[in-house]
């Protein structure tokens, strides 16, 4: 059995006398331990809803979700599940509450009731991982967006979850902040963490093991990044777009230039063009 397994999962929001909204339909999905999967899809396609099913924040309306063999609808196990699956969201400001970085990171482990020496060790380790040791006494609201997001990641890491779900963690960041966060996620991956990564930026899924495309609550495609990049029609149908450089490469190939189709960065395009000449 895979680490996370969704079987025939549907989810419908029912609130007061508002019309019900079915956000997910019949999703089957499994995530192996140590894997990094990306979820992409247009606005309202159900990505954030799916994220909240992974750690039992939501229960499926139909079907089942299991994490590490535990069913998320088992109320006795819900805390075990939440501890196994951490979440990082889009807006760094809404996630940080403490007045000092190290307090922020210690917050989770303190809630677990760990002895203070253990807490300190975990905070040190987490700050080292995200590269913010020298900011431990800083006020979170004085940090840049990318740094804030790394503090949020450190706070989750200090809880020692097996899996971390990221819901558009770079949407609000500038290119530098985005690079910092992506590099930090790669570190978590090399620590063996399972990663679920939600994004609108197709350029960010390049390094993932597997990509899933959602559209109107349904899974319409699953494959390696390269497979997904080549499914141009489906991408278009799902209101998504190839990143600039792969799109340029696609057009140059259509125009007859003999370029390989796995070019994703300006550097590799330039290198291949120079080889042609």
């Amino acid at each position: 059995m895979a680490f996370i397994e969704l079987k025939d999962v549907s989810y419908t929001y029912i609130e007061g006398d508002e019309p019900p909204v079915t956000a997910l339909k019949n999703i089957n999905l499994s995530v192996e331990k140590g894997e990094m999967i990306a979820i992409i899809g247009p606005n309202g396609s159900g990505k954030s809803t799916l994220a909240k099913l992974f750690n039992g924040l939501f229960q499926p309306t139909e079907g089942s979700v299991s994490v590490g063999g535990l069913n998320t609808s088992d109320q006795d196990k819900i805390w075990d599940i939440r501890q196994q699956v951490g979440m990082v969201f889009q807006n760094p400001d809404n996630q940080l509450i403490a007045t000092m970085v190290e307090e922020e990171v210690a917050f989770g482990p303190e809630n677990l009731g760990l002895p203070s020496a253990t807490i300190k060790a975990r905070v040190d380790e987490a700050l080292a991982l995200v590269g913010l040791e020298e900011f431990r006494q800083a006020a979170p609201h004085h940090l840049s967006g990318g740094q804030k997001q790394r503090v949020a990641i450190a706070g989750i890491f200090a809880m020692r979850p097996d899996c971390i779900v990221f819901d558009e963690p770079t949407a609000m960041l500038d290119p530098m902040g985005r690079k910092e966060v992506m590099a930090t996620i790669q570190k978590l991956r090399s620590e063996g963490k399972t990663i679920v990564y939600i994004t609108h930026f197709m350029e960010e899924v390049v390094d993932c093991d597997r990509v899933i495309i959602l559209k109107e609550g349904e899974k319409i495609l699953e494959g390696t990044p390269l497979e997904v990049f080549q499914a141009r029609e489906l991408i278009k149908d799902a209101d998504l777009e190839l990143p600039e450089v792969p799109y340029l490469v696609y057009r140059l190939r259509e125009a007859g230039l003999q370029l390989p189709d796995e070019i994703l960065t300006p550097e590799s395009l330039v290198e291949k063009l120079c080889l042609l000449n």
Binding site: E244, Y247, L248, R251, L252, E254, A255, G256, L257, Q258, L273, L276, N277
Partner: peptide, 20 residues
Amino acid sequence: TIEDVEEEILRHWRGFRCSK
């Protein structure tokens, strides 16, 4: 624009195109 950049590259690499 992507169109202009495509054209500019093709202008220099015209000799290296082969028919589709």
